[in-house]
């Protein structure tokens, strides 16, 4: 369809991908017990996804709020931060997103091509424990959005759910001293450019 809102299409595709990616990161990095995860098929490959309703709801709510930012190309990075029991970051999975300013006409085949590219990201995440060191026990996570403009300008966009408020993150809780950079995957398509890398704290 000519009048298809490409921003929406990209946001739908990316948020669906990010949901799978967040679940998989939490599984692979053992943030939660493996017993809450179940094998499901996404992008034509098996992935581990949580079946815990509270956790699933949290991830869904987070991504629902991020979606308008992605739609307007206001989200520069979506970061899954794994923090230790003192809330200091040990790993940051950084999804750096870039959308072309003028999106060309989409088609099913184009989206199918993007899904193939996204599958490669999922495969990389599923084996990333091989290139990362073990995290300390008692880790938790949070999802951060780095906006292109000052966060306060985007607060209204992200605040789509009344009972799921957002705040400006403190630099201290996102900053990691001299992290080790582990590039995982990058892709370029007509509708999305994205790269994923991990920043890993030297001493965990």
């Amino acid at each position: 369809r000519q009048d298809l809102n490409f921003g929406q299409v990209v946001a739908d595709v990316l948020c669906e991908f990010l949901e799978v990616a967040v679940h998989l990161i939490l599984y692979v990095r053992e943030v939660y017990p493996s017993g809450i995860f179940q094998k499901r098929k996404k992008y034509n490959i098996p992935v581990q996804m949580s079946c815990h309703p509270d956790l699933n709801q949290y991830i869904q709510d987070t991504l629902l709020c991020i979606k308008p930012l992605i739609e307007k190309n206001d989200a520069e990075k979506v970061v899954v931060v794994i923090v230790d029991k003192d809330h200091r970051p040990v790993e940051r999975f950084v999804f750096e997103i870039c959308q072309p300013p003028l999106l060309s006409i989409s088609s099913d085949s184009l989206l199918s091509h993007v899904e193939q590219l996204l599958r490669a990201f999922i495969l990389k995440i599923s084996v990333c424990d091989a290139v990362l060191t073990t995290n300390p026990p008692g880790c938790s996570f949070s999802v951060l959005v780095h906006t292109r403009d000052a966060a306060t300008r985007n607060m209204e966009k992200v605040q789509v759910m009344k009972d799921f408020p957002w705040i400006v993150a403190d630099e201290q809780e996102v900053h990691m001293k001299e992290p080790r950079l582990v590039p995982l995957k990058s892709m370029t398509s007509d509708i999305i450019k994205m790269q994923l890398y991990v920043e890993e704290r030297a001493q965990k």
């Binding site: 017990p33 956790l55 991830i59 709510d61 709020c65 999802v143 780095h146 408020p165 957002w166 630099e171």
Partner: peptide
């Protein structure tokens, strides 16, 4: 604005590992 002024996060934390463990038998 500094780096921190560009970063947003949910106010609420996700369920903790302990909370998840305490509800495991219900799953």
């Amino acid at each position: 604005a500094g780096g921190g002024a560009h970063i947003l996060k949910p106010l609420m934390s996700p369920p903790s590992r302990e909370e998840i463990l305490s509800t495991l038998p219900e799953l």
